[in-house]
Write a protein that binds this DNA or RNA. Sequence first.
RNA 1: GGAGGGUUCGCAUAGUGGCCGAGUGCGACGGUCUUGAAAACCGUUAGGUCCUUACGGGGCCUCGUGGGUUCAAAUCCCACACCCUCCGCCA
Length: 422
Amino acid sequence: MIDLRALRDDPDRLRASQRARGEDESIVDRLLELDSGRRSALARFESLRAEQKSVGKSVSKASPEEREQILAKAKTLAADVKAAEAEAERIAAELDQTLSGVPNLVEEGAPEGGVDDFVVVEEVGTPREFDFTPRDHLELGEMLGAIDTERGAKVSGARFYFLTGVGAMLELGLLNMAMQQAVANGFTPMIPPVLVKPDTMEGTGFLGAHAAEVYQLPADDLYLVGTSEVPLAGYHAGEILDANALPARYAGWSSCFRREAGSYGKDTRGIIRVHQFNKVEMFVYTHPDRAHEEHLRLLAWEREMLDRLELPYRVVDIAAGDLGTSAARKYDCEAWVPTQGRYRELTSTSNCTDFQARRLNIRYRDEDGKPRFAATLNGTLATTRWIVAILENHQRADGSVVVPEALRPFVGRDVLEPINKK
RNA sequence: GGAGGGUUCGCAUAGUGGCCGAGUGCGACGGUCUUGAAAACCGUUAGGUCCUUACGGGGCCUCGUGGGUUCAAAUCCCACACCCUCCGCCA
């Protein structure tokens, strides 16, 4: 949710932001109009209510002869108050409704435009030249006895898989390495619930444009989370944090569930796009004035992981029109996937400023003792998908895969050897 | 799934229709006292929102949530949510 008072002071800022996202600018005038309507309706209600209270108080003190008259007045006042309150509530509800559809203000400097208008910030490493024809991750995964998508489909359907043997070891090692790096950087490790109540899911902004992506359990009125960002954002919902508790950095380890609605036919092979995967996610609550620098820090930590895994990748600055509802700025790191001849997203870090915190009512106490909304940020440290990049980039002609040095202690092997011939 | 108990200002409690947006104790913070500290004493101590601004204040809302009764609700009625205890069942 954006800040209405800030909007009143500087409506052009939201106009510019909406323009950058390619969204409706006229919403600004609509909001301003509803806001002033709500405030005058509220003032009307409040003065009537104040009168009602003072008249009501005089009832018990009135002499019997006045009593009748005062009661009659109180009665009409009660009706007026009720009507005024209903009107104020009606406008407030309309305002909330309109406001809930407004995405976060885009950070200055973010590229304008849509999906294809991202800016490549940096390319790191160079895609490897193969002196043999590289196998794709699924072929390698099958040779190594690491990935079984056929049985995944048998048991659970399309876009499900088993990680088997070294595949399971590889994922556990990767995620543990990510966890360890996070802890070394001062994060508190967390294993959160993956089923959350509607309030929490809504508060994080995932029931807006991406509602169709979310698994829902109607029998229990719960949602399966698509990322541990959701429970980690809900963790401090409704709280007022001590200023010196900030930044509060959490590393969430969880399974993630996504319906992948609307992506039929895309990435159907292997484990690039699946309904369930595991992820280590960084989540930070901080002071709004320090959110920008924290965002760059999260990006640096993501890059540290990619560097240690010796993967070629590029950093992209996502365009305004491709940002999520809550994000003011987003950077993705995309690793090179040799058999696709292109970069694929492995990490994503968003600065949500105080947008998410406003919805979830997450505040901190500033120097003056006043509660203020905190800023929230998130970023990926490792996911199941990383296995794709690791296998493909580090493969050898015989189908074996060299485990990057930094990962070896976590996997317990230097090389993954094929057990099935192809 | 069955039975019962609970939800008040950081914590603990008081409060069965107007004197309660709310008392007391603890904790925390500030002050007096002290060489320093403790004790004692004095004071402050929820959030939201709107108005006004001499920056000091004033109005309204919030006692789990929503609705109802009433001139008036923490207090009476209804529904729901959450928590706890016991029993059963399952991991």
